[in-house]
């Protein structure tokens, strides 16, 4: 492990990602103390006389949005939304995916086949449309958005975990353990699950990157977290038609989304190199 740790720390991209994630987390946790203004307060002086948003200035460091709110404060609180949903939704997706994948891989038979056919079915759905439809049905709050994303994202994880479980279970020593009468929970939790940890850890990190993007996309389409809760994608949604005149309203939150997603991607990829060198590339 210490070798792996060293290898991980040598990866400068991953270090960069770690530092960024740390910074974003600090911003999210301490947002109420850092933010110069309340995130939802619509300042009368935050708009020009004609109602145009203000560019960055000394009072509002990153300018104001179309309602005269401080963009900087909204970005800080938006980090909470992104991180909370990123971690919760991806956690739930990994949990669902792992659970179904392990069951399918271990039980096989009818149940296993049924589960895997169902994942095939889910794979055939256009993911974004599915998320939009689910969001339209559930009338999104923060946790609902997380749930919707989890319901869309668990499928790939289930497939990966399934194939690993199948490989593990087929190994001779499991056969041997089974023949000496070990109970199935024992086999699963002592001999199968521990081998899956690296994959779960990698997915638990990489998945956050896609989740952050999906949350931003849903908010951008107007079906994400409900206003006035600050959300980076939501800020862009509200301001996109003004982007020629007020580009700061698109590019600051856009940069935040990209950096956060990038950081999780870099860390996740480095983890994969360290923990699981056979798995590279897209999947």
């Amino acid at each position: 492990m210490s070798y792996s740790l060293k290898k991980f720390l040598r990866n400068r991209l991953a270090l960069f990602g770690m530092v960024m994630i740390l910074l974003f987390s600090i911003a999210a946790i301490f947002a109420p103390f850092i933010a110069p203004h309340p995130p939802n307060k619509q300042f009368f002086e935050g708009l020009s006389i004609e109602g145009a948003p203000l560019p960055p200035n000394t009072k509002f460091w990153l300018g104001t949005d179309l309602l005269g709110r401080s963009l900087f404060s909204r970005l800080l609180f938006g980090a909470r939304t992104s991180l909370l949903i990123g971690i919760a939704a991806n956690g739930a997706a990994v949990l669902i995916g792992a659970f179904l994948g392990i069951i399918a891989g271990y039980v096989k038979g009818f149940l296993g086949t049924a589960i895997m056919r169902f994942t095939d079915l889910m794979m055939a759905f256009p993911a974004l449309l599915l998320a939009i439809a689910l969001a339209a049905i559930f009338n999104p709050s923060l946790w609902i958005v997380a749930l919707v994303i989890a319901l869309v994202n668990w499928v790939q994880i289930a497939r990966v975990i399934y194939s690993q479980t199948v490989t593990l279970v087929e190994q001779e020593y499991i056969e041997a353990i089974r023949s000496i009468g070990a109970s199935w929970p024992r086999i699963l939790f002592v001999h199968v699950v521990p081998h899956l940890w690296p994959t779960l850890l990698v997915w638990g990190t990489l998945g956050i990157a896609t989740t952050v993007l999906l949350e931003a996309t849903l908010s951008f389409l107007g079906v994400g977290v409900r206003p006035p809760t600050p959300s980076w994608g939501g800020i862009i949604y509200e301001s996109q038609s003004y982007f020629l005149d007020a580009p700061w309203l698109v590019f600051f939150p856009g940069a935040a989304i990209m950096l956060l997603s990038l950081s999780f991607n870099l860390v996740g990829d480095a983890l994969r190199d360290v923990l699981d060198p056979t798995q590279r590339g897209r999947d």
């Binding site: 939802n40 179309l66 107007g222 206003p227 038609s241």
Partner: peptide
Amino acid sequence: NNTDPNPRIAQAIQQ
């Protein structure tokens, strides 16, 4: 309605 500018107007009313 969730199309611009209605969410903004609704937020102004909310405040």
